[in-house]
Design a protein around this nucleic acid. Structure first.
Length: 643
RNA sequence: GGGCCCGUAGCCCAGCCAGGAAAGGGCACCGGCCUUCGGAGCCGGGGGUCCCGGGUUCAAAUCCCGGCGGGCCCGCCA
């Protein structure tokens, strides 16, 4: 029995449906009462009573004997239009413990009958600045999805898409070249260094551009004032950046001022790289980008995240796949011209309700045409993404591709699915899942990668580590601090804080709250897991199933509640995974942890004298440990047997 | 102008998709447990117009319509 709770509810449902004359089976359902006093299960009778035009009492009299004939049912009672059902703990516990015995450490996770092949693409941050807290949410969610699906038995490949084409990277590379391709100063992480070069170069370029515009706007006082105030803004960013590395900044500044037409230099760089026409440029781009990626990998390894594949966007462009997509698109009847460049128009296909449904698009959303190429013949991001999406499906023979991408890209992701569909990649279009999440903000900070204004994920993680280290020192001043454990707890706390909240909700990440190790946190769960583990070890080996006193929960509310919760876990997990909802797993194990903590304080396990009852308790603890452990694993967090 | 997401105690979050019983947790606050199977814990207490207004329903935090507030998107950016 892999899902004990579902087994029992199904059994009850079947008994009713075969025992009572019911026209519309959807009128009958088994639900969970809001409070333990109202039973373990409840069946609302209102709808059925209305449909059958009979009284609640009459219905109850009809249901009662059927329910009472089920061996797992202890008693039933009519209360306020509901049949409240109490399960027989001695029966339920046998089912649960048998399941625990046979699935062992894997209890809670039910493998799917037919595994699917999933590609999960996540993080994929632009290689021009360090990972920030938003990338952290992406990483935490992506890792959770990857882990969940793997546990459920699917075959999963994780990918990181390196967006190395495009203007931002070209600007960074320009700065990098002007500085002579410098290695990071001692003690500076690679991506932080690249982030600095990018921001400094960008800010200086913007200042130079703005100054020219200001010259031209002397005749227009309003515009002049506006531009000057924008310049002030930029100047303060520049001053802040200069402060960090004055020599580098000044050198960049003077070099850039000496370039007559910066735009054409940037564009030359972009073309040289994308078309692979200039070997030096190619080498330079790769050197700079890889430097940044090296930094990313260090942060990700802190987060205990590793990717199966790293894909360069440039490789997609070089492979010819993009050309192929373009030529397919050009033959499409939906080509329109927007200011001379070809674009794919969606207005026709969006008239189809069926297509909207298949591609999970809102009923009324209007989607602007997708421009296919720039007038200088270079390609655009979304078009390259069409080629990349196909590649992800093809290379892994994937059934589904999940893109973990910020909600602000919803429209672009919709365009992507539509374009795939229109070009004949219907299966791909329908099975491309945009797993979107909302912004993360830090209180009081306006972040901007372009201006070099950000708090890096590294800084957040480091503060977390320091904080945890302090707490551990304070709690156990006489013991040595296990640095590995401290790091793991700190990093898990951040991951949990970012993956345990509905991704559709904007999030203000407060360091103090995420690091509050008291409750609703990974540390609390890790601690509870370790404690359950320690209890199990001290209690001795798990007894065999016929040594257990199954009546031990008969008149014991806490044991009964815990048992019920454990019995539900596999079902909760399966549904959460199938719905791609890591937050449901997070809240389930949190409630279980609370329940477990309140139970074992008042109901000793090791000191229990009655061997049958002790065995019962050991199985409960074993169940708790398995469920919390697998819940954490599902979230991409490794449980620790000792803290 | 149009579209998408969010709006639940001082603060944070679950419940909403598949409508059901007096709306659940946590933080903070107040009071107890401080001879404990690892106190990162336990027990108790106060605190709510479920953003507002309509509608559907025996029943609405949940579904529908209309507002309000916050965020995001509508580029030859990515």
């Amino acid at each position: 029995m892999r899902e004990p709770f579902r087994y029992v509810t199904d059994k009850i449902l079947e008994a009713i449906l075969s025992g009572v004359q019911i026209e519309e089976p959807q009128h009958i359902k088994v639900e969970e009462p809001p409070k333990p006093e109202l039973g373990d299960l409840a069946i609302p009778l209102f709808r059925l009573a209305k449909a059958k035009k009979v009284g609640l009492e009459d219905l109850y009299r009809e249901f009662k004997p059927i329910l009472e004939s089920i061996e797992e049912v202890e008693s039933v009672k009519l209360m306020g239009g509901y049949i409240d059902i109490w399960l027989r703990p001695s029966k339920l516990s046998r089912i649960v413990f048998e399941s625990l015995r046979s699935s062992g450490e894997e209890y809670g996770i039910v493998k799917v009958m037919a595994p699917k092949r999933y590609v999960v693409e996540y993080v994929s941050a632009n290689p021009v600045h360090p990972l920030h807290i938003g990338s952290g949410r992406n990483a935490a969610l992506g890792k959770a999805l990857e882990s969940m699906l793997r546990l459920r038995g699917h075959i999963v490949e994780s990918r990181f898409y390196i967006n190395d084409l495009g203007r931002q990277v070209a600007i960074m590379v320009l700065g990098y070249r002007l500085l002579g391709g410098p290695q990071p100063p001692a003690g500076v992480k690679e991506d932080h260094w690249i982030g600095y070069i990018y921001a400094a170069t960008n800010v200086i370029i913007e200042i130079l551009k703005l100054k020219k515009e200001i010259e031209k706007s002397r005749g227009d006082p309003d515009r002049y004032r506006e531009l000057v105030s924008r310049l002030d803004d930029l100047m303060s960013d520049a001053a802040r950046l200069r402060e960090r590395y004055p020599e580098y900044f000044d050198r960049l500044s003077s070099e850039l001022s000496g370039i007559e037409d910066i735009e054409s230099v940037i564009s030359e760089l972009m073309i040289g790289y994308e078309k692979k026409s200039n070997p030096e440029t190619v080498e330079l781009f790769r050197k700079a980008v890889d430097l940044c990626i090296e930094g990313f990998k260090k942060t990700l390894s802190q987060l205990e995240i590793e990717f199966d594949k790293w894909d360069y966007e440039s490789e997609i462009a070089w492979s010819g796949d993009v050309e192929q997509i373009l030529s397919m698109a050009m033959k499409s009847p939906y080509i329109v011209y927007k200011q001379g460049v070809p674009a794919l128009s969606f207005s026709e296909i969006l008239k189809s309700r069926e297509v909207r449904e298949r591609l999970k698009l809102p009923k009324t959303l209007e989607i602007p045409p997708l421009v296919l190429m720039r007038s200088d013949m270079t390609t655009l991001y979304t078009v390259r993404d069409i080629a990349y999406s196909i590649k992800k499906f093809r290379e892994f023979n994937a059934d589904y591709v999940i893109n973990v991408i910020a909600a602000e890209q919803r429209l672009a992701q919709a365009q992507l699915r539509l374009a795939l569909y229109m070009l004949g990649f219907r299966k791909e279009a329908e099975n491309l899942i945009h797993y979107s999440y909302e912004m993360v903000n830090l209180p009081g900070i306006k972040m901007s990668g372009r201006r070099g204004r950000y708090v890096t994920l590294d800084e957040v993680l480091e503060s977390a580590v320091e904080r945890v280290r302090d707490i551990v020192r304070r709690r156990s001043p006489n013991e040595g601090v296990d640095e590995g454990v401290v790091r793991h707890i700190a990093v898990s706390a951040v991951k949990y804080a970012l993956a345990s909240i509905d991704p559709n909700k904007q999030l203000v990440f407060k360091l103090e709250e995420a690091l509050d190790l008291e409750r609703n946190s990974a540390p609390y769960l890790l601690y509870t897991y370790a404690r359950a583990n320690s209890l199990l070890e001290k209690a001795g080996p798990l007894p065999s199933l016929d040594e257990v006193d199954y009546s031990a929960a008969d008149n014991h509310a806490k044991r009964r509640e815990l048992l019920l919760m454990i019995s539900k876990s596999p079902t909760v997990f399966s549904e959460a995974i199938d719905r791609l909802s890591p937050e449901d797993i997070a809240s389930h194990i949190l409630v279980l942890a609370d329940l477990f903590n309140s139970w074992y304080q008042v109901d000793p396990v090791i000191r229990e004298q009655d061997p049958g009852v002790k065995g019962f308790k050991q199985y409960l603890v074993y169940g708790v440990r398995s469920v919390i452990g697998n819940g954490l694993r599902a979230l991409g967090i490794r449980p620790l047997s000792r803290i």
